[in-house]
Nucleic acid binder design. Sequence first.
DNA 1: TCACACCCTTACACTATGTGCAAGTTTGCA
DNA 2: TGCAAACTTGCACATAGTGTAAGGGTGTGA
Lengths: 229, 229
Amino acid sequence: MTSSLSPAAPSPAGPSRRELNKAATRQAITDAALSLLRSRGPGSFTVEDIADAAGISRRTFFNYFSSTDAALASVTHGFLDNAIQQFRLRPAEEPILLSAQAALMALADPMTVAPLAELFTLTQQSALMAHSELEAWDHCREQITAVARERAAGTPGADDELYLRALAGSVISCGKAAMEVWFARRGADLSPASLAELRQLLIDAMALLGSGFTAVQPPSPSRSDSRSS
Amino acid sequence: MTSSLSPAAPSPAGPSRRELNKAATRQAITDAALSLLRSRGPGSFTVEDIADAAGISRRTFFNYFSSTDAALASVTHGFLDNAIQQFRLRPAEEPILLSAQAALMALADPMTVAPLAELFTLTQQSALMAHSELEAWDHCREQITAVARERAAGTPGADDELYLRALAGSVISCGKAAMEVWFARRGADLSPASLAELRQLLIDAMALLGSGFTAVQPPSPSRSDSRSS
DNA sequence: TCACACCCTTACACTATGTGCAAGTTTGCA
DNA sequence: TGCAAACTTGCACATAGTGTAAGGGTGTGA
């Protein structure tokens, strides 16, 4: 774990050696966990297996993650933290649903989605959505609530907790629903056509939410037209 | 655990002795768990403590629940199963949001809400929503999805998975949001006024969802008016 | 360059979780 | 009554998760 390169840190005052080491260890752990998930399937390897594969002690594993579940869920966490970051970048005046849609669009690229897609397929498409997986989504929900709350400080009508929480929760649920449907339809297919379908599903989901789920009865051709690429 | 009453089962062909015993044991476990939660606070008692308090062996505990968390979450599970039951009773033609609202109304009575309210307050108002707690809500989401799917078999427009999952997830999120806000405002207050507020919050939450969260800008007096009893 | 303080890793010990198994007990049924 | 199925229990064991103290790498100031 201790790469002894030239001791001088480069001039661009980046993260310190300690931070780099920690990040590398963290990455080594999740890589090892994913590798074991690929080779043995879910639930058939232990913390010690991961620690051995990552070249660290069992105790150190627990300094980074509280369980094998949590190590795997770091993939989801990374994805969703990314989403939050994109979400924060949106202008404060923009309607929240549009911000969410835009943030999600920014994530529908192969590099970002690939780890999550693989995780989903390897864990049997959310058959038994792991505990930590649910926690990751819930954590994201809280983040969105917080951002919405900040924005609402200026907006007169959107100031109550019910509105904020209900909206944030619904956004998360719809985003999750879109990804689940996509995984169910396409598996780990990351082709441009498949990613276009994912984007369309995310747009459709946000549209459903924005319309109060009333756009059902009329079979309007502009609704969920995701099947035709 | 073995109450030796008259061996003859009563004529009203109710549940068998075995089922009664199992139900009693299950209840004894959750009672013991709740009691320990009250007296010691969350995270400060073990499975063995619960088993001792319930008068069963540690091994038997695990025949009923997979963790202390799960034992406590049975409260939430009971509440939500009740909700699903009410939900199923609604006519199939009724819009899902109305069905959800009606089902939730039926649960806003003291006897039904009390256990959940106590659990919430004892676990610091969802500060660290336990793993199993999240699972309970997720399970309920799946149930609602299933019911909606059955209904959609007849309806032409609502047949796709995205619609079903997004809607069910949003309904759950909004219901959860309403309860969270209520707990935050009222704690374990079960007075008629408090329960009326809960009902209003649930109605408001479903209304928000039904309107696509657009009823924000105009400060219409009919919106979230829950503060005035 | 050295020395010191700090952070991180690790081994060890220990409690708690969760499960398989086999024996004992209760319940259902003929 | 007697048997079969279901339930409980004790035991053993692998794994999870945490406190602690010792050792090694890292930042910093003299």
